[in-house]
């Protein structure tokens, strides 16, 4: 049995809509997030990501549609939903002048966690996120990366089922971004979390189990990274030690790169066919996959040029 299908949906969005006056921020979107997966929600600023997250978190009312979190509905069981969601906001929303411990204590109390229960959870999170040396320090004396770790600790205080990360690495340097991702990956494994991620960095989305690309409040594409790459970008075949005339014979568009030529091919099968038909050219070569950045550019490019195409039918939509 395919384990992907055995996993249950922990978040279900059906025909979600939200408008602000004439601006249709979210237009009838539907998607699923499966338990334990890393789900990436992508889009440029103004695409509708934050509005969708605000509705999922109950911060914002919706004009229409349904949101079900682990089987619970906002209308009937809001408290249960609130206990299942942990949110790391784009910008830290903790109290900068208070110590890390004071911050975590006051936020834990909002979930009814205090006294010995809080101490126990604090010690777990301290170990998990290496907070020992930070607990007594005021938040405004911490670095950006340290603050993000505290934000993550705050989001995990009540053992949520879904961790929502709203552009968690924006503004961080590459090394700190890498560290934050190591923490998130570690958490996903150790705490069996479902991670719902929004990000501007496409390379962060490349490791996701499933992606939804949002554009102008609509789903422009969705699928696994592999499906999206297959659907939206070419593979590249780079040949070295050959002449331009030889490359031109192969019949694919190409461009010059250092020491050779790079051909855009639709899939690995096309490369295999070329190797079999022109073995003399394939002495020094490599086949590379396109990147997620290319997927995003191609998807949003298609939207701009092909307004009539029903975008949500592209990619591998799932039930």
């Amino acid at each position: 049995m395919n384990t992907e299908y055995a996993k249950k949906n922990v978040l279900e969005i059906e025909n979600l809509r939200k408008s602000f006056g004439e601006i249709h921020a979210v237009q009838d979107i539907s998607f699923r997030v499966k338990e334990g997966e890393l789900f990436a929600f992508l889009g440029v600023n103004g695409a509708g990501k934050s509005t969708t997250i605000a509705m999922i978190c109950g911060e914002l009312g919706r004009d229409g549609g349904e949101i079900r979190i682990d089987g619970s509905d906002w209308k009937t069981n809001p408290d249960s939903i609130k206990r299942k969601l942990g949110v790391v906001f784009q910008h830290s929303v903790l109290d900068r002048s208070l110590s890390v411990q004071d911050n975590l204590e006051s936020r834990a109390a909002l979930y009814g966690i205090y006294g010995a229960e809080f101490e126990k959870r604090l010690s777990e999170l301290t170990e998990l996120l290496s907070l020992e040396e930070l607990l007594k320090r005021p938040l405004d004396k911490l670095s950006g990366g340290q603050r993000r770790r505290i934000d993550i600790a705050r989001a995990l205080l009540h053992r949520p089922k879904i961790l929502i990360l709203d552009e968690p690495t924006t503004g961080l340097d590459p090394q700190t971004r890498k560290n934050v991702w190591e923490v998130v990956s570690h958490l996903q494994k150790t705490e069996a979390l479902t991670v719902f991620l929004t990000t501007h960095y496409m390379e962060e989305a490349a490791d996701a189990d499933y992606l939804v690309i949002l554009d102008h409040g609509k789903i422009a594409a969705e699928g696994t990274p592999h499906e999206l790459k297959k659907q939206y970008i070419d593979d590249y075949l780079t040949l070295y030690g050959v002449s331009e005339a030889q490359v031109a014979v192969l019949g694919y568009p190409y461009r010059t790169v250092a020491g050779g030529y790079r051909l855009a091919i639709p899939n690995p099968s096309a490369a295999t066919a070329l190797i079999l038909s022109h073995p003399e050219l394939f002495v020094d070569y490599e086949i590379t996959k396109g990147k997620m950045d290319d997927v995003f550019l191609n998807v949003t490019g298609k939207i701009l040029s092909e307004e009539s195409v029903p975008k949500h039918t592209k990619g591998g939509k799932r039930g």
Binding site: C57, G58, E59, P78, D79, K82, R83, L85, V87, F89, H91, V93, L94, D95, R96, R107, L110, Y111, G112, R154, H158
Partner: peptide, 13 residues
Amino acid sequence: MTGARKDMLITPV
């Protein structure tokens, strides 16, 4: 203004 209120309102308090 700091967003702390938003952080409080996503809790069951």
